[in-house]
């Protein structure tokens, strides 16, 4: 296999890396070290899938919908920015059971929620940035959405 020639960004990265003039900020390294605590061995991954867009709706609507699919579990997540923060409202289908609970994780904080009988949960005032939703099901492996970034 013939390697592709490096693109501009790869060359720029190499030049900067070799010159050593752009050291990694300590808070960036610290965040990378802390990310290890977020691992979930054995978790099934819920991946984003396309959802049919409501007809005639464009970016005028504030809220956005993402659907994550883990095969035996689907999570619909509505994201609504409010005052620079984010409100999340989700629904898990089929309902993962009465003892299931949901964690909404960001690199800095984790919010835990019980599910309504309809499989719904909500969390308000999340900081924009990376998040993942994890569903813990007693006796079964947890399901985690891939890390997803949202900005207000």
């Amino acid at each position: 296999m013939t390697p592709q020639p490096p693109d501009d960004e790869a060359l720029i990265a190499a030049l900067r890396l070799a010159s050593g003039n752009d050291p990694v900020p300590e808070h960036v390294s610290a965040a990378a070290r802390a990310a290890f605590a977020l691992r979930l061995p054995g978790a099934a991954m819920a991946r984003p899938v396309a959802v049919p867009a409501p007809s005639g709706v464009r970016s005028a609507e504030r809220a956005r919908l993402i659907r994550f699919d883990a095969g035996d579990l689907v999570l619909d997540l509505e994201i609504d920015p409010a005052d620079g923060l984010l409100d999340l409202a989700g629904q898990l289908l089929p309902h993962p059971g009465p003892d299931a609970r949901v964690e909404i994780r960001t690199p800095r904080l984790t919010e835990s929620r019980a599910l309504s009988p309809a499989g719904r949960f909500a969390v308000t005032g999340l900081p924009p940035g990376w998040f993942s939703v994890v569903c813990h099901r007693p006796g079964r492996s947890p399901v985690a959405t891939v890390w997803t970034r949202i900005r207000p």
Binding site: A31, A32, F36, P41, W130, V146, R149
Partner: peptide
């Protein structure tokens, strides 16, 4: 933004560790 992107890459590695 660079910090955000770098963090994303590390989170991806964490989720792909297995």
């Amino acid at each position: 933004d660079a910090a955000d992107a770098a963090q994303g890459a590390w989170l991806r590695l964490v989720e792909h560790l297995p």
